[in-house]
Nucleic acid binder design. Structure first.
Lengths: 205, 205
DNA sequence: AAATATAATGAACACTGTTCAGTGCGAAAG
DNA sequence: CTTTCGCACTGAACAGTGTTCATTATATTT
């Protein structure tokens, strides 16, 4: 009989309903400032109900964590049409910056927050998404090596170094530490620095 | 009469007492997990008393913020004895990494957390410490330029780029995102990447 | 129609940061 | 020396948090 299946569908629907309300509130007002009660209110259920579908608040965050990586991947993959691998790498950098700036809360969740990791620290698949996007970077770098742009051969370390720079750049901006330069040219600074970094990897990798 | 002065001294002592207990607990168990009541218990006063000396929890965090920058500066300044400016820059990088790894909570407070900024967003002196250490980096870079190590002339952007890389590198590590590489060679990865970055700035700045 | 399984509730628990009327003590005034 | 006064301190109270669980309402099965 289809009752079991319907129930499973309903359960999935409910999970989605909760997650969508949670996402909306999280992205609107931040993770800390969104309570389980807020989410419950939004979907017109009692707070306890949420715990029938998600173990705790962290599991809710982790569900978003997966979505966030998917979204970033989709944005990064738009560069595949660029034939020249170095041009592709540069454009990927631009897209990375764009994603971070346009989705600060998601970026935080992906690369800064401890919360979504803590509870699921044992499971291997937590890193799946991260490894996949790191793999994307490595592929483009490998193409650059093959095309003779880079003499360096340790792709893993090259990727690590490039990622570290990109991550540092956007994090300084997102966490408001560029306000110490009084000007309102923060985005220009980011672009100028990125141009310099491109020059660096072009002439020395 | 000296009564007023004594009272002021006692007030200062009390502020220190609170801050020291707060620092101890913050660094032991993290900022989130330390409550005002915990701090009050530690110094055997009531929770309300703390609010007579610090406006709120953020002001407590900001007091530590200042300490943290002082501590980092002291560590970075130890490189001044190195004559060769490029060697000095490299050693400063090593010290930066060392400081971040040995003081993860302080590093968080300095460059990642929003909390200590929020309440004091208007005051200019919040950035004093940050600007000072950024200035230190710029000085060393300037020396490198003068010594002919770098052809690049925009010191501000060079400093920004180097800082971004350093910050990204340690942040990925501190925020546990290097665990996605299953090995337990995280520190080696950091060093290898740093070596590559040194090579990059040496041959292309 | 009765028994059972399941979904949802909302009060309760142990916390949090913060405020504020009240208390008790040291200093100044009479 | 006593009385008044200011002020450091208290701790209960407020409005919130994440989470749990006995109870209730609903839906399915017997």
């Amino acid at each position: 009989m289809g009752i079991q299946e319907r129930k499973e569908r309903e359960k999935e629907d409910m999970r989605r309903l909760i997650l969508e309300a949670a996402r909306k509130l999280f992205l609107e007002q931040g993770y800390e400032k969104t309570s389980i009660r807020n989410i419950a209110d939004a979907i017109e259920y009692s707070p306890g109900t949420i715990y029938l579908y998600y173990k705790d608040k962290n599991e809710l965050l982790f569900a978003l964590h997966e979505e966030a990586f998917l979204k970033m991947m989709q944005q990064l993959i738009t560069v595949t049409h660029i034939n020249d691998p170095f041009e592709r790498l540069i454009e990927m950098g631009h897209q990375y910056i764009k994603y971070a700036i346009e989705n600060p809360e998601l970026y935080d969740l992906m690369f800064i927050m401890q919360a979504p990791m803590e509870t699921l620290a044992c499971r291997d698949e937590i890193w799946e998404d991260g490894l996949k996007s790191f793999g994307l970077l490595k592929l483009v770098i490998e193409d650059c090596v093959k095309a003779g742009y880079f003499k360096e051969t340790n792709i893993e370390i090259m990727a690590m170094t490039i990622w570290a720079y990109m991550h540092g750049l956007v994090t300084i901006y997102l966490k408001n530490r560029m306000s110490m330069f009084k000007d309102d040219q923060q985005l220009e600074r980011i672009q100028e620095s990125f141009q310099l970094f491109i020059k660096m990897i072009k002439t020395s990798l």
